[in-house]
Structure formats: structure tokens, C-alpha cells
């Protein structure tokens, strides 16, 4: 089983996690920028965090055989703090960098006017920088927040296939499926979604545009939930190719729209003898310009 965890906050995890993830088949991740638990109070604090995602965390992941990408954004929660909003002015520098494969996490937390302003602005930045978008949906008033999210995406003019709407559940998946956006599910020990409910959703809605992540962070969470969902799929009668589609090919297809994935040989031990090169063909400008297959980005 080869796994691309499309949403995980490795900054909050240990090297034991990296080792266990690698052993479970994780070969690539995307770490979206988010809230750190402790509120930030300045733009400089964001910049150091972004630098860490692009620098130290990519290096650390590489030590364990895992390709690390990131998404960069002002998160919804801190979009409400005027001391943090100015970070929007430095985002263009970061959105131009190699290994930045999306704008995210953006979206709503408490559905405030400030959140909506930051969200709309960052949808524009995604269009300008030719990047897909990872959208967080709120934990409270989720259905209304998801509906408003889809309205703003439609108004932005971004093609829905460049938008991933995350943290969905049984009550929000249908409206996202109908919108044409990608559907993300965070598999958690207690909250959000569990692997068996996830399998039932895959049975009902199919595998197209379906994304499964662990969203593991500094709270109670499990970086192996992607692998456990893959196992639950197999136990339910899905084939290995189905698991490979959900856990590897779908996230590669979504983030590959950036042209900036750093994977080339990372999935070489894939399921079913699938040719990983075929999966990435044309997705990565970066890959095309490398004289060798071993260059680190």
C-alpha cells in the first residue's frame, strides 16, 4: 500500500511518527499551514512557520524517506486577528516557491465577515499563482459553512476541480459532490470521521474525487488513519487498485495540478505493479526539468 497523506501537520509530530508512517506505506505528504493551538500575534511568527514548512520540515521528512509538500495560507481562525491579517501581503512570495502545491487551509471557522474577506482574497491569490486550494470546513455549523464555502468558490470563478473541500461528513458530502469540487475526509480517533463510516461513503459515492487524510496534528489524532482506512476498504471487499486510487492516485492528481509535486520515485513500490511514472506524467514541471531522478527539490 503506497500512501500520500494529503493533509497532515507534521510540525506537531515526532520522528517515531515518521518511522511508523513510512512502515505503513506513507511516501509523500502535504502539510497545510494552520493554527498552532497557541495564537500567533505577528506576521513574523507566520513567516518563521512558513519557512519551517518549506525548510526544516521538508528536510526532516526526507530523512525518513517521505516527500514533504506544503500549502500556504492565512488560516480562518487567525483571519479574525488584525495583527495577523497583514500576512496576506507576504503570501505571494511563498506561493511562488517549489514544493508549495496549494493555497490552504483557507475557509471558515466562525463564519465572520473578516474570515470571508480573507477567504475570498486567497481564492484570488490561488488563481493568480495557478495553484489548487485546500478548504477547511468549520467544526461548528458545518453544513451552513460548507454551503457558503461552495457559493464563494463558485463566485470566484475557480474551476471546481481545483478546489478540495475538507473535513466532510455524511451531512455535507452530497452538496460538495454536486459542486464538482474534490471531497476530503479527515479520519480521526473520536471526531470528524472514522474509517468504517468512510468506507460506507465510498460505497455510496464512488471513488472519483475522493480524498482521505489523517489531518494529524497536536490534538488527539493518528497519523496511521490513512493506512487503517485502506485496510478497512480491503476488509470490505474493495480491491488493491481501489485503495491505491484513494490513497495515492487521487491526491497526486489533485495536487499535481500545481505542477510542483516533488515526487518522482517516491511511489515506486506501489500497489499492483502500477507504473508510478505514468501517474505523474505531465503533472510535474519540476520533474520534467530535472536532469536526474535523484535531485532534491
Amino acid at each position: 500500500m503506497r500512501i500520500f497523506d494529503p493533509h497532515i501537520h507534521m510540525t506537531s509530530r515526532t520522528t517515531d511518527d515518521y518511522e511508523a508512517m513510512y512502515a505503513a506505506g506513507v511516501r509523500a505528504v502535504t502539510e497545510p499551514a494552520f493554527w498552532l493551538g497557541q495564537p500567533r500575534t505577528s506576521v513574523g511568527s507566520f513567516c518563521d512557520y512558513f519557512d519551517g514548512l518549506l525548510g526544516w520540515e521538508r528536510f526532516r521528512a526526507g530523512q525518513f524517506g517521505i516527500r514533504h509538500h506544503c500549502a500556504i495560507a492565512l488560516n480562518p481562525k487567525e483571519a479574525n486577528d488584525p495583527r495577523c491579517v497583514e500576512v496576506l501581503d507576504v503570501l505571494p512570495r511563498y506561493l511562488a516557491k517549489d514544493g508549495v502545491v496549494a493555497v490552504g487551509e483557507v475557509g471558515f471557522d466562525s463564519m465572520t465577515a473578516d474570515e470571508e474577506k480573507a477567504f475570498t482574497h486567497q481564492l484570488q491569490l490561488a488563481a493568480e499563482h495557478d495553484l489548487p486550494v485546500l478548504v477547511h470546513t468549520p467544526h461548528r455549523d458545518k453544513a451552513a459553512g460548507t454551503r457558503r464555502t461552495l457559493d464563494l468558490v463558485a463566485e470566484s470563478g475557480l474551476p471546481p476541480e481545483r478546489v478540495l473541500v475538507d473535513h466532510l461528513n455524511e451531512l455535507t458530502v452530497r452538496m460538495v459532490a454536486e459542486s464538482g469540487c474534490w471531497m476530503g475526509f479527515s479520519i480521526y480517533p473520536d471526531t470528524k470521521m472514522d474509517e468504517h463510516r468512510m468506507v460506507a461513503i465510498l460505497r455510496e459515492y464512488g471513488l472519483e474525487k475522493m480524498i482521505v487524510n489523517s489531518a494529524a496534528d497536536w490534538g488527539r489524532s493518528d497519523p496511521l488513519k490513512t493506512a487503517k482506512t485502506g485496510q478497512a476498504m480491503l476488509d470490505d471487499g474493495f480491491g488493491a487498485a481501489d485503495v491505491d486510487r484513494v490513497l495515492w492516485r487521487n491526491p497526486v492528481e489533485f495536487y499535481g495540478q500545481s505542477g510542483r509535486l516533488l515526487i518522482d520515485d517516491a511511489g515506486a513500490d506501489g500497489a499492483d505493479g502500477a507504473d508510478p511514472a505514468a501517474t505523474f506524467q505531465g503533472n510535474s514541471v519540476l520533474r520534467g526539468q530535472r536532469p536526474t531522478g535523484t535531485e532534491e527539490g
Binding site: P92, R93, L95, A96, K97, D98, H129, G259, R260, V285, L286, Q289, R290, P291, T292, E295, G297
Partner: peptide, 16 residues
């Protein structure tokens, strides 16, 4: 320059 400079490796060339 602030957005062109970071994009150079993928837009021009990369490698030793």
C-alpha cells in the same frame, strides 16, 4: 522579482 526569483528552477533549469 519577488515571485519570479523563487520560480527560476522550475521555469529555467535545475541541476548541477
Amino acid at each position: 522579482i519577488s515571485t519570479i526569483f523563487p520560480a527560476v528552477a522550475r521555469r529555467v533549469a535545475r541541476g548541477p
